[in-house]
């Protein structure tokens, strides 16, 4: 019912939703108000679960009939067994975790595939902002001042690719998204996408 009222979802969520096969099991880590889970349930018949740190988000989800628990990506992923889900989604949350590498290890352990999206700190606007003004960037994608941001572990697309290599994680697909919503395949073109991509979406597997 909810999905009928909002068939359009955020462009990065739509991108993730398009990567998920119908009739699969999905865990959305940091699911917010449940937009993606709701969409996946309505349009892809997905058996979805969520973890959300904010109580407002959790209560909104449960009140809407979505199976969501109050929890923390840094502490609560350890409970889940290996290969419990077809996909584990971490959308725009990695940069807010205390131990991103550990979280990524859990994601690829719990899910056959992990789908991770994050804001790219290597984007030209971020670089330009730092270069020209000498201050931490504040814009639509990164709306917080440095002193009250939940985002404590920013990375660039290149940083992320290097970490995946170090962890021995396979990058199955990678896309960048610019501020106009245009998507580009990253593949081996890390250098350009690291400048042009406002956000990135990676599909990972072990």
């Amino acid at each position: 019912m909810m999905a009928d009222q909002r068939k359009t979802i955020r462009v990065d969520l739509q991108l993730i939703a398009d990567m998920i096969e119908p009739n699969t099991r999905v865990l959305d880590v940091g699911c917010g108000d449940g937009t993606l889970l709701d969409y996946l349930g309505a349009f892809k018949q997905v058996d979805g679960r969520g973890i959300e740190i904010s109580m407002e988000g959790v209560n909104a989800c449960v009140s809407a009939g979505l199976p969501v628990i109050q929890g923390d990506a840094d502490t609560d992923l350890a409970d889940y067994p290996d290969d419990a889900f077809d996909y584990v989604v971490l959308s725009q949350t990695l940069q807010a975790t205390h131990a991103p590498r550990q979280v990524l290890e859990h994601l690829t352990r719990i899910g056959r595939r992990a789908i991770v999206s994050f804001p790219n700190f290597g984007h030209w606007r971020v670089r330009g902002h730092l270069f020209l003004f000498g201050r931490m960037p504040v814009n639509k994608t990164l709306p917080y001042q440095w002193y009250d941001t939940p985002n404590i572990h920013f990375c660039t697309i290149k940083d992320f690719v290097v970490l995946c290599r170090e962890m021995g994680v396979t990058i199955e697909r990678s896309l960048s998204l610019d501020h106009g919503g245009h998507r580009r395949r990253i593949g081996s073109h890390v250098f350009f996408n690291n400048i042009l991509g406002g956000q990135a979406v990676f599909v990972l597997s072990r």
């Binding site: 959790v58 449960v62 628990i69 929890g71 067994p81 419990a84």
Partner: peptide, 8 residues
């Protein structure tokens, strides 16, 4: 991996 909701 049970189907669980949890609210405080």
């Amino acid at each position: 991996a049970a189907n669980v909701s949890f609210a405080e």
